[in-house]
Design a protein around this nucleic acid. Structure first.
Lengths: 114, 114
DNA sequence: CAAGGTGTTCAACGGAAATCGAACACTCGG
DNA sequence: CCGAGTGTTCGATTTCCGTTGAACACCTTG
């Protein structure tokens, strides 16, 4: 029996924020970064829970990457779950779009390339 | 005859950027600031060309204010015109909304108070 | 022409955010 | 139980952005 044993998991659970509790300023600040934009775009092109944190093609080290995911969680943009040794991600598309209609679509439009 | 004389005005014309030439990153960065958000909100609640730069209720000095307007111009959000000694403003609502549909509306929704 | 009002520019400061390297914690496979 | 792989945390550095004060430029009114 690999995991999910009794007594609860040991790893520190990632802290999430509900999009409803996110201010516009926080949302915009989270999105106003090249690395995070790329993370979201790549994430949007993948199925839920299929991408681990290290699987993204961004020009930063692990530490900075971990920080960026923390920001994205705080802004209600990304949800994370532990899967074995990896931490897999999901873009909270529906929930975030309910809170900020059209904002994510704006970022994901192909004609919005930089 | 006060002004509008031949030979052209002398004041340095403000540099504007067409919303079509603005990247998403630039737009989001411009909007991800408390002072600029307030400027846009106040501007949205006023008729075009009725608000001079100094007429806004923001907690910063003239220098910083001038800088913020420069950022807003560069992001294609605000248009400025000289009117006597004052510089009056206009929110480029239609044009900006064509480039980034829904983005301005998001900021101006009352339930998005911080 | 002088004076007050408006806005820009400049150099400089300060603080927040991004980044890195190293150390640590956890999971899984030999 | 050890080792490789994954991600977080810590401390320190760097970079960027907002802010200021002072000097300057322009327009108008007296």
């Amino acid at each position: 029996m690999p995991n999910q044993a009794a007594g609860g998991g040991h790893r520190a659970a990632p802290v999430h924020t509900d999009p409803d509790d996110v201010s516009v300023l926080t949302a915009l600040s989270a999105l106003a970064d090249p690395v995070r934009i790329q993370l979201i775009r790549e994430l949007a092109g993948s199925a839920d829970w299929t991408r681990s944190c290290g699987s993204f093609d961004v020009p930063v080290g692990k530490a900075a990457l971990s920080h960026h995911f923390s920001v994205l969680r705080s802004a209600g943009l990304v949800e994370q779950r532990d899967k074995g040794p990896k931490r897999v991600n999901r873009l909270r598309r529906g929930e975030f779009d309910t809170r900020f209609p059209g904002l994510l679509d704006l970022l994901l439009r192909t004609d919005n390339a930089d």
